[in-house]
Simulated scan of single mutants.
Amino acid sequence: MSNTPKAAITGWPVTYSRSPLVHGHWLKKYGLEGEYGRRDVDPETAEDFYRNFKDSGLVGCNVTVPHKELAASVCAELDPAAEAMGAANTLWIDDSGKLCGANTDGIGFLGNLDQLAPGWDDNPGTAIVLGAGGAARAVIWSLLSRKFETVHIFNRTAKKAMEMAEKFGSSTIGHAWDDLGDYIGKADLLINTTSLGMRGKAPLEIDLGPLPESALVSDIVYVPMKTDLLKKAEARGNRTVDGLGMLLHQAVPAFERWFGMRPEVDEELRAMMIADLEKDG
């Protein structure tokens, strides 16, 4: 019986997940014993898998769509972020045998901006978040943790934006997508959390004309690395941050939890990931 700690990305499907590249790079870089792979978890058996995670042979796992909410619901303990979001992307068994969960998506978002746009939150004012899904939830949580005064949420289904705003309190306001033009001129920060603009998806069509030049623009999409939103923002003089770093930084606390060393998101890792993304065209 091997004592090598094993972790994996779990979800349905996980064939194309790049998480094994990230964790594999760190295991090799730091010379650690360990393995990180992929494990497809069929939605029909997912509850049983996570509820009995201690029988999986893994010391922990990442959780991706569509199981983040389910994973959180079967954990004995959740960190404050997972508790607030009702979703977990990182699981481990503690010393007493309990299944614990965390949500590091918000940490990943913040780590990316801290690294690539230092000082971005020196004067936290007004943020605009496009979308009202799981990624938006993580981004909103992280912005409020950095004391942003107001977060406006815009979604194609206005009701979803308003329901999400209600969960986060009076600093968040939900809107219909068509009202974006009335608010974009007030933004200090604009973040796309939708899949619009991703390769193979519909384009993100918004007018950046009224956006202040001082506003930072971020897109959590990283395929392509430079989305049309980021290209248009750069062309008019806005600072921009791509979405790759969110994927890399959200992996840091999970790796430390399972393998006992806090890894670094450095240029070598970014370059390796960019080269891999470019292979896919």
Results as ranks from 00 to 15, higher is better:
residue 138 A to H: 06
residue 18 R to W: 05
residue 106 G to T: 09
residue 60 G to S: 14
residue 207 D to F: 06
residue 16 Y to A: 14
residue 221 V to M: 04
residue 183 Y to D: 04
residue 256 E to I: 02
residue 221 V to P: 05
residue 195 S to G: 08
residue 2 S to Q: 13
residue 229 L to N: 12
residue 59 V to S: 04
residue 205 E to R: 03
residue 271 A to Y: 04
residue 279 K to V: 02
residue 90 T to G: 02
residue 59 V to N: 02
residue 164 M to K: 03
residue 190 L to I: 00
residue 23 H to W: 02
residue 29 K to D: 10
residue 110 L to H: 06
residue 271 A to S: 15
residue 26 W to M: 06
residue 12 W to P: 04
residue 61 C to F: 05
residue 242 D to Y: 01
residue 68 K to A: 14
residue 228 D to N: 14
residue 17 S to Y: 09
residue 188 D to Q: 12
residue 147 K to A: 14
residue 222 Y to N: 06
residue 265 V to E: 13
residue 153 I to T: 13
residue 174 G to R: 05
residue 84 A to R: 12
residue 280 D to I: 01
residue 88 A to S: 15
residue 257 R to P: 06
residue 59 V to L: 13
residue 33 E to A: 15
residue 59 V to R: 14
residue 236 R to L: 04
residue 123 N to H: 07
residue 91 L to M: 08
residue 250 Q to P: 04
residue 34 G to I: 11
residue 258 W to T: 09
residue 155 N to K: 02
residue 235 A to S: 15
residue 195 S to H: 10
residue 267 E to N: 04
residue 152 H to Y: 11
residue 247 L to F: 04
residue 65 V to C: 04
residue 201 K to Y: 11
residue 146 R to F: 05
residue 17 S to A: 10
residue 114 D to S: 11
residue 256 E to N: 03
residue 95 D to I: 01
residue 245 G to K: 01
residue 47 E to V: 00
residue 110 L to R: 08
residue 50 Y to C: 10
residue 92 W to D: 08
residue 38 R to G: 01
residue 261 M to G: 00
residue 170 S to K: 14
residue 94 D to L: 01
residue 51 R to N: 07
residue 174 G to W: 03
residue 155 N to Q: 12
residue 213 E to G: 07
residue 16 Y to G: 13
residue 108 G to C: 05
residue 116 L to T: 09
residue 150 T to G: 03
residue 88 A to T: 08
residue 112 N to H: 02
residue 17 S to W: 09
residue 192 N to F: 07
residue 101 G to H: 01
residue 195 S to Y: 03
residue 243 G to W: 03
residue 188 D to K: 00
residue 7 A to M: 06
residue 181 G to S: 15
residue 228 D to T: 11
residue 36 Y to A: 11
residue 244 L to Y: 11
residue 120 W to T: 09
residue 198 M to W: 03
residue 76 A to P: 00
residue 27 L to H: 08
residue 46 A to G: 09
residue 120 W to S: 13
residue 55 D to E: 15
residue 174 G to P: 02
residue 55 D to P: 03
residue 160 K to A: 11
residue 241 V to M: 08
residue 251 A to H: 07
residue 183 Y to I: 10
residue 253 P to S: 07
residue 118 P to D: 10
residue 28 K to N: 15
residue 281 G to A: 14
residue 53 F to V: 11
residue 24 G to F: 12
residue 51 R to T: 14
residue 78 L to C: 12
residue 7 A to R: 04
residue 47 E to R: 11
residue 274 I to F: 08
residue 242 D to A: 06
residue 13 P to D: 12
residue 74 V to E: 07
residue 14 V to G: 11
residue 142 S to M: 07
